[in-house]
């Protein structure tokens, strides 16, 4: 399980990290520890794969990029082939298998809004399967912060 310092890091550093000259020293003062201890702990959490990244989460759309949720209906015997084709595209940000007739769900992240349609077409051509696009029409909430109790 997580120790006290790990819990603090995970619960308190998802939303914000100090923007000042010595951010780790500032946290060390608040948490009554040493800055190097915090640095080492964050490194260890990254090495263990508990943290994927430490830094900024950009608003890609505001920076000119585009996102689109997509789904495909993939038959059992075609799985491995389709997965390897789809994941071969650098524009595929994540890909999940879900329980539905539409069983492969992935997110495309592209440089421009126009590229979404182009990538979808390439995936359809290479896999010989239809890609259903679910572009965002309205966003009600965004943000994912998880907490440890």
């Amino acid at each position: 399980m997580f120790d006290d310092l790990e819990t603090k890091i995970i619960n308190q550093l998802q939303e914000s990290f100090p923007l000042c000259s010595q951010p780790f020293a500032k946290l060390a003062e608040q948490w009554q520890t040493d800055e190097q201890v915090i640095i080492n702990k964050i490194q260890a959490l990254l090495d263990q794969g508990i943290l994927t990244r430490f830094g900024p989460l950009y608003n890609a759309e505001k920076l000119g990029g585009a996102f689109c949720l997509c789904a495909m209906q993939v038959k059992g015997q075609d799985w491995d082939t389709v997965v390897s084709i789809v994941n071969g595209f650098t524009e595929v940000a994540h890909n999940y298998q879900r329980q539905h007739r539409l069983n492969m769900w992935f997110v495309l992240a592209t440089e421009t809004p126009e590229a979404i349609a182009q990538i979808i077409q390439q995936i359809e051509t290479q896999t010989q399967q239809k890609v259903y696009a679910f572009p965002k029409e309205q966003e009600y909430y965004v943000g994912l912060t998880l907490s440890l109790s």
Partner: peptide
């Protein structure tokens, strides 16, 4: 620091901190 603060205020940076792998968190 000033630029990062501004990018955050303007929303180019949504969040600035750690990004967790939710599966590994339980």
């Amino acid at each position: 620091v000033t630029r990062l603060n501004r990018l955050k205020q303007q929303g180019f940076i949504k969040r600035f901190g750690i990004v967790v792998h939710h599966k590994e968190l339980g």
